[in-house]
Amino acid sequence: MADDAKTYDPPFYTDEELDALYERDPVEAMRISRRQAMMLRELEARAAASTGAPPPSEAELRDALERARRVLLRDGGDLELVEIAGTVVRVRLKGNCVGCPRSVLDLKHVVERAIRQQFPQITKVENTF
């Protein structure tokens, strides 16, 4: 656990510090900003998972997935719920999503976002083939 603490204990830069760094080295500023955003999301997920909130019921989860499904259906994709394993939800992307290079982004930015907005205790959404 001490190693995890080190992983999430870097100095966080303020917006002003990142702006100043961006003037000197824009690539480094973007890298740091992206890493900070990822760490903050992970910390928020861990905090939400540690609240002890029970996992959502299958019916509640299907309702949240239906919103994401409507977005995917616009491009010929689809999804189905495979299982809820603790704080991890497994889905199967179908239709045009199979083999699509954007499916990874859709899983993260459409499906996971729809689920985690309603259920912050869910830490991860995975695609099962």
Rank of each mutant, 00 (worst) to 15 (best):
P55D: 00
R67W: 05
G86S: 11
R69W: 00
R35A: 12
E28C: 06
R113A: 06
R69Q: 03
T7N: 08
P56H: 09
R70H: 01
I32G: 04
R24W: 04
L79Q: 03
A53W: 10
L81Y: 00
A45G: 15
V111M: 06
L40E: 02
A85S: 13
V104H: 10
E23R: 10
A114E: 14
V98K: 12
P55Y: 01
M38Y: 08
V91F: 14
N127K: 03
R70Q: 03
T87F: 06
A114H: 12
A5W: 10
G52E: 11
R46E: 05
R92K: 15
R74S: 11
V125E: 01
D9N: 12
K6W: 09
V82P: 01
Q118G: 05
R34T: 13
R24E: 08
D106R: 06
L72N: 03
R62M: 04
T128V: 12
E28M: 11
L79M: 07
V89F: 04
E60V: 08
T7R: 14
V91R: 14
G86Q: 12
T87E: 10
P101K: 06
P11Y: 04
F129P: 13
E23Y: 04
E126P: 05
R70K: 07
A68C: 05
E126D: 09
F119P: 07
S57L: 08
L21D: 10
G86R: 11
P11M: 04
V82A: 04
Y22N: 01
R113W: 04
R62I: 02
D106E: 08
A64I: 02
L18I: 13
Y22D: 00
I115K: 03
R102H: 10
R92S: 15
A59G: 04
Q118K: 13
S50R: 12
Q117I: 00
G52F: 12
F119H: 13
R70L: 01
R46F: 04
E44C: 10
E80M: 05
A47Q: 11
L65C: 01
L65M: 01
Q121N: 09
M38L: 13
D9P: 03
V111P: 03
M1L: 12
S103Q: 07
R67I: 02
A48T: 09
R31T: 05
I122W: 02
R62H: 02
L43E: 05
T14S: 15
I32V: 14
S50E: 15
A49H: 12
V98A: 07
T87H: 13
V91L: 13
Q36P: 01
T7C: 06
N127C: 01
A68K: 05
E112Q: 15
D4T: 10
G86N: 10
L105K: 04
L81D: 00
G95V: 07
L79S: 02
R41I: 00
M1Q: 11
S33F: 01
K108S: 14
R67F: 06
P56L: 10
L72G: 02
R41L: 07
A59H: 03
P101Q: 06
K108R: 15
T51S: 14
V104S: 14
G52H: 12
T51K: 15
V71R: 07
A59F: 04
L93A: 03
E80W: 03
A37R: 12
E28D: 07
Y13D: 02
G99Y: 09
K124R: 15
P54R: 15
R34M: 11
V89R: 10
V111T: 05
T51C: 09
